[in-house]
Amino acid sequence: MRRIAAFLRNSWLAFKGVSLWLNPQAYLTEKIVNPMFRLLFYAFLLAYGYKTMENATVYIFANAMLLSTISAFNGVGIIYFSERHQGTLIYTIMTPKSKFVVIFQKVLFHILDALITVTIGMLLAVVIFNFKFAGNIYAALLLISILGTVSVSAFGIFVSSFGLLTRDINMLLSIAESVVFLFSGANFPIKRLPFGLGFVSQILPLSHTVLAIRSVVRGNIWSGLKLSYMEIVVGLVYFVLSFFFIRFLEHQARVQGNSDLY
């Protein structure tokens, strides 16, 4: 029990150590006001495009889910960049502890943070657009959101790991975020993508979650939950890939000797 407490405590410290916004004002701006306006922009755009609010409902919730990318890319994505900037990356590399445990500690609270943002987004959607669903739909949406958030965070770790090798990670994160936005299907059906690009969405995070949300919001809870299984697979693949990729890039950092550049 004490070991679990120590693990959680360190996860919190890892999160606190690299987070810029851990004060009430900054949190309000970064984690509530910004996501709220982002969601409202897409919601009104979609309501306008789909003519009726009934048609836009699915996409509004999908966009609330996309808010998880804020933590996945601006939080998880810059973990190594932040470490590099503070000069602590070399100590993260030098630790004899399993890199799997170190990474898990570093992302745990970012995942929880993303989940809070998504929940706030969905609550705002419910309140502002006066959506009314049965209780089991809310419960299903919560479960799907958790799985989607973990999956997109795993993708964030994968992209973040390039930070072991380069200090110019922001360009890569911007591209990754745009790609997830495009292929998630949160704003238009994936089948509308040209040249059979719909396949790409299958291997990217959140696309299965968006499909699951669509199904659940339309009342098909079980089929929605089944669709979420694929999101678990995608998340796991990125997590495992990240683990091996980090080991490889750490070796490359030792070859190139640039782990203390910032």
Partner: peptide, 9 residues
Amino acid sequence: GERNLYQRL
């Protein structure tokens, strides 16, 4: 130097 620590901790 002044780096190499978590400044916010």
